[in-house]
Amino acid sequence: MDLRNLKSVFIIAEIGQNHQGDIGKAKEMILEASRAGVDCVKFQKSCLEAKFTKSALERPYNSVNAFGATYGKHKSFLEFTIEQFKELKDYAESCGLVFSASAMDQVSFDELKQLGLQFIKIGSGDTNNIPMIRYISKQNVSLIVSTGMQTDATIKKVHDILKDSNANFALLHCISSYPTSTEDTKLNYIIYFQKHFPNIPIGYSGHEKGIECSCLAVLMGARILERHFTLDKNQKGSDHCSSLDASELHALVKKVRLIEKNVNGVIPNDLLCSTVTDLNLFECPRGFVEKACQPVEDTPKSIFPCELACKQKLGKSLVFARDMKKGQCLIADDIGVKVSEPNGIPAEFYDDVVGKVLMRDVFHDEAVMECDVN
């Protein structure tokens, strides 16, 4: 897929794991998404041992959304095999849709690559996974990369790695908060990314309720639009509350195509309200514009307070790839990247840790702490 030359806004229905681990329900969701008129359905693929440390998988998961007593059992219940992904891909394509998935670790990326997907998504939780980004940048696969929970410096580093490898990629503005309040959507970072990453397609992956902010994102120039999708917001699972139901997804596609038919180019902030009113996109636009489009000017993107809970739960940390002795100098293969319990040094500092000396004996899968290296 040539992401730089999209003919229209590319609308992705993110099914994720809202299928409840049921392939029949997953197919039902694909069919409903196709009826809504989206371009693509997207799932999530994980190799649990590659994504999580053993301690993270064994962590008790006492939640109303749990499908298992531990987080590992919960995630295993929701995970499809690569053979099931092939079945879903064939079904989606029979419905006229592009099929894709987020690769949540390098093992899953290699599996998804074998399916010949038109693109693979790199979710916000892996955008700081520097060794994985370096690996996939050389795989000749189109990539859509979300930027939630990431700083400006990390996003620029990832951009430069992909650009230097001549990768075909797009960046999505994203806030990793479920659901995201209107005030926290910070849509002006779409404009910020357009300015700082010229010639790279910029899109929006939203987790807020409703479709208003998504309409604004398109008016502001988003070329890719991703929204989580569910058949029932009351189902068990943490993503349903920030997902669109079938009627909302239908309405969103209709509004986006209306915008494309009647609007040429990016609408400046001072004309957003009048444009929304003229096209009858939604009611009371002034309040939404004032909340969602707060000025950012040239303020570098940071990790926002509303994202800290997600970062604590699913952010990637540096971990030790094997048992090692005190005094050993770390090389690249000594360090891995996983969701760890507890959190360790954030994954974006991978290059800073390579070459440092161990201050104690360490064991495979332990999180790398500041006090461990010097």
Rank of each mutant, 00 (worst) to 15 (best):
S55A: 14
F288R: 09
Q20N: 13
V141P: 01
S142Q: 07
Q312A: 13
E297G: 14
L97A: 01
K113W: 00
N234D: 10
E226I: 05
S274L: 15
C174Q: 12
V353S: 04
N374H: 12
Y204K: 05
I331S: 14
L219F: 04
F67W: 13
Y350S: 11
L115Q: 09
R322P: 03
A33D: 00
E58P: 00
E370I: 13
R134V: 10
L48T: 10
S142I: 03
N140C: 05
S55E: 12
E248K: 00
V337W: 02
G237P: 03
V266T: 13
S340K: 08
E208G: 01
E183V: 03
S214H: 01
T151Y: 00
I144Q: 01
N5H: 14
V64K: 12
T277E: 15
L162H: 07
L231S: 06
D372E: 13
K45M: 12
N262L: 10
G148C: 13
D372I: 02
I202G: 03
A103P: 00
I120N: 00
L115A: 06
A332M: 07
D333T: 14
G21K: 06
S55R: 14
Y71V: 01
C273S: 15
T70Y: 08
C371S: 14
M132K: 08
V145F: 01
I122F: 09
P305H: 04
F43Q: 06
S146I: 02
A36F: 03
P342Y: 03
I211W: 06
T230Q: 02
E87A: 13
N168L: 01
T182Q: 12
G355P: 09
L330G: 01
N188F: 11
A26L: 05
G68I: 09
G72E: 05
K236T: 12
P179V: 11
Q17Y: 11
F229M: 05
L252P: 07
S302I: 12
A367I: 08
G24C: 07
L249W: 08
Q118S: 11
M104T: 08
M132P: 09
V218C: 11
M29V: 07
P295M: 12
H159W: 09
L172E: 01
P285C: 07
I82N: 09
I130A: 03
M1I: 08
E348T: 04
R35N: 12
E290K: 10
I144L: 11
P179Y: 12
C241E: 04
S137A: 15
V256L: 00
L162R: 04
T81H: 08
L6Q: 08
V368W: 07
S181K: 15
T151K: 15
T147Q: 02
I345P: 00
R4G: 10
G237V: 05
D323S: 15
M359K: 15
F169V: 02
T70I: 02
C329V: 15
L31H: 07
K311G: 07
